[in-house]
Structures are given as C-alpha cells and as structure tokens.
C-alpha cells in the first residue's frame, strides 16, 4: 500500500518503475532468441563490453547510449572474427574479448569518474533514472519490439534451422549481427535498472522460465516478457522496502519464478515428471503381479 502511495507521490519512483518494466519486457523478448540460439555467453559478453563505451561517452560528454552501442557491436564483431579465423572456439573467443573490453572499461571509468559511479554502472541505480534516460529506454523498447515483430519469421527460421534459412537465401550472418545490435541496445537500456553484471540474468532467466512452460515460440516470447515485467515490479518494490540494490532484487525475483517453473511446470517440471514416472512404474508393477 505504502508502495503505491509513494508511487503516486514521487515522480522519480514512477520513472524508475516505468523504466524497469520496459527493461523487463525487452530483456524477456530478446532473451528468448539468446537462449534458443545458445548465445547466453554472448549476452554476458556484450553486457560487460558496453562498459568502455559508457566511459568514452562520458569523456566526450555525449549520451552513454552511443558509446555503449558502439563497443557492444565491436565486441560482437571481434568475437565472430576471432572464432572464424582461428582454431579458437566461440566460447574461448568470447572469454578473451569481453574481459579485455571490460578491463579497459574499468580503467577508463576509474580515470574519469568516482568509484560510486562505477558501482552504479556495475550494479544499477534505478532511483537515479533521469527523464532523458527514461525516454531513451522507451525508444529502445519500441525499436526492439518493432524489430522482433517485423522480423519474427526470419528470426524464427534462422534460430531453428539456420541451414534452411541459408538455403532459401536469408543472410544469416546479417541476422546474427542485427540480433547482436538489438542485444547491445537492450543491455544499454538495462544499465541503470540492473547494472552491467546482472543484465545477463534478465536476459536468460525469464526466457528460460518461459521455455519450461510452453512449446511455442510466440507464447514463449509473451510469457518471458511478462516474467521480466513482473520481476521488475516486485524487485523494485522489494528493493525499496528493504533498501537493497534494485538490480539484485529484480534478479532474485526472476530466479524465484524460474524455481517455481522448474519444480512445478506441468510438462517439464521436476515434480510432475516424478509423479508421472511413479505412475508408470506402479502401473507396471500392478500388471506383473496380477
């Protein structure tokens, strides 16, 4: 109740809530493609790699969005280049490149900003969301949702059967980098809400939760977006009440939802699987004794 009162009263809270919900939704949507394409590591990499971009933007006095997108996309290209042109496997290439970018980022930030700023970028500080940040998040959100809506078919087929999509002439590599660009934008939008370190959780956990509950991609996307939004709302609420970091609270709520699905999902959940297996076994036993 108090939360709602506070929400009505303080515009900074409204901004925080709106931004978090949008972040929850777009992380959920893009996250579906990330986990289906087996790119969870890539999500982690890009989220860390935006750090130097943020620092450089700060130095140049421009909005951090531009620098972050630049270094994020550079990282994606770098990883692709190293793994295609050497015997280094994709996961190792990811490990090498994103840590290097992250290290540069830490040095740059510690040069130009205080350690509290670094702390906020790493772990988020949703209550400090400015109006301009909120607008950027909303615009990014709309771009992401529109992109997924318009290219749904292409994203679906190239994720499920890249050989078929290449065979009928879709530019798989372009689609990959397109998705990496969307991923970078999502990460940037999430900076203030959950921070660099925990973005990957918002990308993966709601999507994985939805994955346990449905067998249809379209349904999975909607569910994942809903889980992201719910996590954002409850996380923000908990973070205010208990005065803990908003990013951590949001991530914990989504992990909690995942646990519920993991245990109780009708098809994939541990509980019902065990029950079904028991039933089959006992039916067999009854038969063999009768």
């Amino acid at each position: 109740m108090e939360f709602i009162h506070a929400l009505l009263e303080y515009t900074f809270l409204q901004k925080a809530l709106l931004t978090s919900v949008m972040v929850g939704i777009i992380c959920g949507v893009i996250g579906c493609f990330i986990i289906l394409r087996g790119m969870a590591l890539m999500g982690d990499a890009i989220s860390h790699a935006v750090l130097p971009g943020v620092a450089i933007s700060y130095m140049l006095g421009i909005n951090f969005f531009f620098g972050a997108v630049l270094t994020g996309v550079l990282t994606a290209v770098g990883i692709g280049y190293v793994s295609q042109n050497s015997r280094i496997k994709n996961d190792a290439a990811i490990g090498i490149i994103f840590t290097a970018f992250f290290a540069i980022g830490i040095i740059l930030i510690s040069l130009v900003k205080s350690s509290t700023d670094l702390y906020h970028i790493l772990f988020g500080n949703v209550l400090a969301v400015r109006t301009s940040d909120m607008w950027i998040t909303l615009v990014i959100g709309i771009i992401i949702l529109a992109a997924v809506y318009f290219f749904y078919k292409e994203l679906l087929v190239s994720s499920f059967d890249p050989t078929m999509s290449a065979a009928y002439g879709l530019p798989n590599r372009l689609i990959h980098y397109f998705l990496m660009t969307l991923l970078t934008m999502v990460t940037v939008a999430s900076l203030q809400t959950v921070g660099v370190i925990l973005v990957v959780a918002m990308l993966i956990t709601p999507a994985a939760t939805a994955y346990l509950l449905t067998n249809r991609l379209s349904v999975m996307i909607f569910m994942s977006a809903a889980f992201g939004a719910i996590s954002a709302i409850f996380g923000l609420f908990l973070s205010l009440i208990y005065n803990v970091a908003s990013g951590a609270a949001i991530v914990l709520v989504s992990a909690f939802l995942f646990t519920l699905a993991f245990l109780f999902s009708p098809k994939q959940g541990v509980l019902f699987r065990t029950i079904r297996a028991r039933k089959v076994k006992s039916a067999l036993r009854d038969k063999s004794y009768s």
Partner: peptide, 23 residues
Amino acid sequence: NEMRKKIAYVPQRSDMDWTFPIS
C-alpha cells in the same frame, strides 16, 4: 541464387535442435 526459393533442403537429422519450442 536465382533458384534458391525453388530448392528445398532437408538437413541431416543430427544437425537439428529437437528441443526448440515449435510444433
């Protein structure tokens, strides 16, 4: 490239992701 859309390719079964959420 001119004929791509008229060519159907059925991949080796081992190349597919059978857990993908698709009916």
